[in-house]
Each structure stands twice: as structure tokens, then as C-alpha cells.
Amino acid sequence: MTALLALEAVSYQFPGSPTPALRAVSLQISAGQRIVVLGRNGAGKSTLLLLASGLARPQQGRIWLNGAPVDYSRPGLRRLRQHVGLVMQSPDEQLFSASVWQDISFGPLNLGLSAEAAQQAVLEAAAMCDVTDLLDRPTHALSGGQKARVALAGVLAMRPRCLLVDEATSGLDLWARQQVVQVFDRLVAQGGTVVLATHDLALARRWADLVVVLHEGQIVVVAPPAQAWADPAVRALIAPPEVWEG
């Protein structure tokens, strides 16, 4: 079966950085998967998501979308963004419009949808993220949890098949976090894929089908949580011993 998204020996080094952020990383992402990316700060999690969403271009290696190499021309990137959506770490960095309604409508209109189709996409995404009652609210008057769900709705309104989430659940209380995870579950139930970069081990253990552990820009393991947890070397890369003892 062709992977929805595939990274093949991808490397990336930020300008001015002495070391590469990612080194020869290969990963296959299929439809309907719940993937959690773990690793220490600076391990390359955010860079992996930037590359997978086409926001950065690999200096080596290739990225494949539905079996075809990603085309970095404007139409090619539009096609990629129809399939792959990225939710940023901080909602304040994503929400740009003064009203929730207008912010969520931004993505669908950029995809070339008509006003009616975009309106329908906004309403569907708002319902999916439980923010319908916030549509006429200003974005700056939302709570942290509400902002996270609105930011999620802004990406889901583009109806991506693969959702990349960069630590968007960090800083949320347990209730808000659960609401966001429920949105992920709804997307997966509809055949979508969620790739979540996080430090939340409990969430990774409970929710993921697959964990990807990154260390110094390289993938150390791709395995179901129980299998990854069983390896002491992998455990040592994910968290300090005290965490595992707890």
C-alpha cells in the first residue's frame, strides 16, 4: 500500500546552525494512524513537521505524497496543503484574524473554494472542534484551550488527510487537552492521520498506535508504544529514569 506521506533519507540544517537538525530521516505515514513523535528539546521534532508540511525543503532526500515526490511549486504546495495540515505550537502564532469566523475561513479560501463551500467547511470544522459558539468571538478574547481548538479548526477546515500537530497540547489543562485529543480521534475515525509531536508520555502511551523517537536529528525507533517502552535504551532517550520509576 502506498504511504500517504513518506520521508526518504531527509536531511535539513538551519542556516547558521553548526549541526543538522535532521539527518537522513526516513518515515512512512499511512492513512488512519495515530503517531506520536517523542524526543528531547532540539531533537528535531518541529523540523520534521516543518519538512513534512512543505514549509521547509529538505537539503537531502525526498518527500513523497501519495507515491509522488512533493512538488515545491505554488500549485504543488497547494496540493500538499490540501492533504497535509500543520497546527503550530502556539495558537497565538497561528491565529491572525480578529474574528474566529474569519480566521477559520482563511485556509479554505486559499485552497480556492467558493464562498459557499468555504462557509460549509468553516461550519464543519467548527462543529468538529466544538467551537461553533465561538465563531463570532474575537480571537484575542479566547482562553488558552479555546484558542488551541480554534487553531485546530483553522487547519481542519482545509480538510487535510494528515494532521501534523506541533506540541499544541502543551500548556493546556487536562480538560482542554482531552477536548483536543477528542478532535484528533474524530479525524482518525474519518480515516485521517494525526502526527503529534509532544513530551506527554501518558498521552503517547494511551493514545498512539506508533511512537517515533528522535534523538539528535535521527530516528531511533518507530514502534508501538509498548514495544518502544520495553527497550531500556529507548526509554533513556525519552525521559530521565525518575519519570519511569514514577
Binding site: 503550530m88 469566523w101 482563511f106
Partner: peptide
């Protein structure tokens, strides 16, 4: 800078288009 990246992630092509209220 982060906002610009986020706009590009949602298909920004140079014009901010949103639905009317």
C-alpha cells in the same frame, strides 16, 4: 516570523482572504 510560517501552512499566497461577516 512565526505568523508568516503559520499563514504559509494554511496556503497563504500573498493575499489575506477571509469570509465576510
Amino acid at each position: 516570523q512565526a505568523l508568516e510560517t503559520a499563514l504559509h501552512a494554511r496556503g497563504f499566497t500573498g493575499e489575506v482572504r477571509v469570509l465576510p461577516l
